[in-house]
């Protein structure tokens, strides 16, 4: 069993709470977190913030040939979501009628299991999104 727990742990704020960065200089939000603001460089002043939990789909695809570890979940929907503050997130879409998964659809963050390597290792939890009316 590969011990990925410490590595995963460092990403809990990002995966559980959508914690990213916000630049107080150019007022732009980034997800995942950045070390330096790509707009302002050294003049940027980045702080850590929780991203809004709602947004809209700006692009999506149906995954039929998934990466290792997601075989039993395919086919599933993957979407690029623009959050209310403009930051973009790539996420799986769950609990949504396929007819409603389209560009512009309003989505809300949900907390789900993301992966589990086997029945002995740690379970990875994190965000997915669902379409809301």
């Amino acid at each position: 069993m590969q011990n990925t727990a410490p590595l995963n742990w460092r990403r809990f704020p990002e995966r559980y709470l959508l914690r990213g960065s916000y630049c107080e200089t150019c007022k732009q939000a980034f997800f995942p977190s950045r070390a330096i603001c790509p707009n302002c460089r050294r003049k940027g002043k980045l702080i850590s913030i929780e991203m809004p939990r709602t947004g809209k789909i700006i692009s999506y695809t149906r995954v039929h040939v998934p990466p290792e570890g997601f075989k039993n979940e395919a086919p599933y929907y993957l979407a690029i979501i623009e959050l209310e503050n403009g930051a973009k997130v790539l996420s799986q879409i769950v609990d949504s009628d396929p007819e409603k998964i389209k560009i512009g659809a309003k989505v809300k963050k949900v907390f789900r299991r993301i992966a589990e390597p086997d029945e002995y290792g740690t379970i990875t939890y994190g965000y997915k999104f669902k379409v809301v009316e």
Binding site: V110, F111, R113, I123
Partner: peptide, 13 residues
């Protein structure tokens, strides 16, 4: 519960 849900995810929701 769906296959990616468990007592923990339900509790959080």
């Amino acid at each position: 519960a769906a296959s990616d849900e468990d007592a923990c995810t339900l509790a959080v929701q």
